[in-house]
Simulated scan of single mutants.
Amino acid sequence: MEEDRRKRSSAQTPITVASQREDGDGISEVSLAELIALRARVGSARMAPLSTRAARHGQQSSRLYGRGMDYAESRVYQAGDDVRRLDWRLTARSGKLHTKLFQEDREGCLLILLDTHASMHFGTRARFKSVQAARAAALAAWFASRAGERVAMLGFGGVDQWLTPQAGAHGALAVCGALARWHAAGRAQAQQPLSDALARAAHVARGASRVLLISDGFSCDAAARQRLIELTRHAGVAVLITADVLELELAPPGRYPLEHAGERREVPLQSTRQLTDFRQVLGAGPRRLVELAGSLGLRHASIDTAADPLDAVADLIGRKRSPR
């Protein structure tokens, strides 16, 4: 009988919070294999200049540093650093591994700020918002890896964890692994205002040159505006809003089965007023975040759960796909 319900028309597609799965189906659970495979798609992209700093009213471009000959400084060794560039004298004096940096080695750092609230575990088309957000985050990590940037990630909401910056493919793979682990960790009902997450991001990632916020916007609060303004003084900030199609468009008339915490109800939606009110409630989060990002002049984009996130991510972090 449950199978028959799933085969109903799109107007009757269940809106559910799925139970924990271990197979990583890419629908209600993150598929680690899919996240890793996204590396090949990024490989065909054409790289554009990085935007590494942002002032309150706009982005400022900065040179992407690569290999060079002029010594600049040394810093503590980080995973992915070239061992051939170890600063042995400083290492011997300090007792800690240090790497030499040359004038063109001061790579940028991309911080992915990922919303893991329970509201992200929702979807009526193709996959959950949380799975779509993981796909977008993995693409961003692979773009950063290809650009020679380090990549870090901070989860907020259901999972409050920090992934330290790493360079190269090691960094992107670490992000992919963390995305799969965090998603499988559960669906805690904890609520964390976006402003708190932004404050922590500014504190733990002072070296980040760019920040990509991925969220459905339901954690967006009034204080988030000032926090974003403060963050843009030190890093380029872009926002990717993940939303379900019913949060973006009017639903077709019908009876919608809703399931939450094991309780299932059917909600009849027939009149235009009912459908409009339904979208207003469901779409409140994405709408708030779009309005906030737009009012601050931040680069932002919205994608639904059935969309291909590649173009949106490429545009937000300053990449362009190769012409066909």
Rank of each mutant, 00 (worst) to 15 (best):
H117Q: 10
A118L: 15
A118H: 13
A118Q: 10
A118F: 01
A118V: 15
S119V: 10
S119P: 15
S119L: 05
S119E: 14
M120N: 04
H121L: 15
H121Q: 11
F122G: 00
F122H: 05
F122D: 01
G123Q: 02
G123Y: 02
G123C: 10
T124M: 12
T124F: 12
R125E: 14
R125H: 11
R127N: 06
R127G: 14
R127C: 15
R127Q: 05
R127V: 12
F128C: 09
K129C: 14
K129T: 12
K129I: 12
S130V: 03
S130N: 02
Q132D: 14
Q132L: 10
A133C: 04
A133P: 04
A134S: 15
A134D: 10
A134I: 09
R135N: 07
A136L: 03
A136W: 07
A136E: 15
A136M: 07
A136I: 10
A136G: 01
A137V: 12
A137P: 00
A137T: 08
A137Y: 01
A137E: 05
A138N: 08
A138K: 02
A138M: 09
L139H: 06
L139K: 11
L139S: 11
A140K: 10
A140C: 02
A141M: 10
A141F: 12
W142Y: 13
W142H: 09
W142P: 08
F143N: 03
F143D: 07
F143A: 06
A144S: 14
S145V: 12
S145M: 07
S145K: 02
S145I: 08
S145F: 05
S145N: 13
S145Q: 11
R146A: 04
R146I: 02
R146C: 07
R146S: 09
R146F: 01
R146L: 03
A147R: 11
A147W: 10
G148T: 03
G148P: 06
G148V: 07
G148I: 04
E149A: 12
E149K: 09
E149M: 04
E149G: 07
E149C: 05
R150K: 13
R150F: 00
R150G: 00
R150H: 10
V151F: 05
A152N: 02
A152M: 08
A152I: 00
A152P: 00
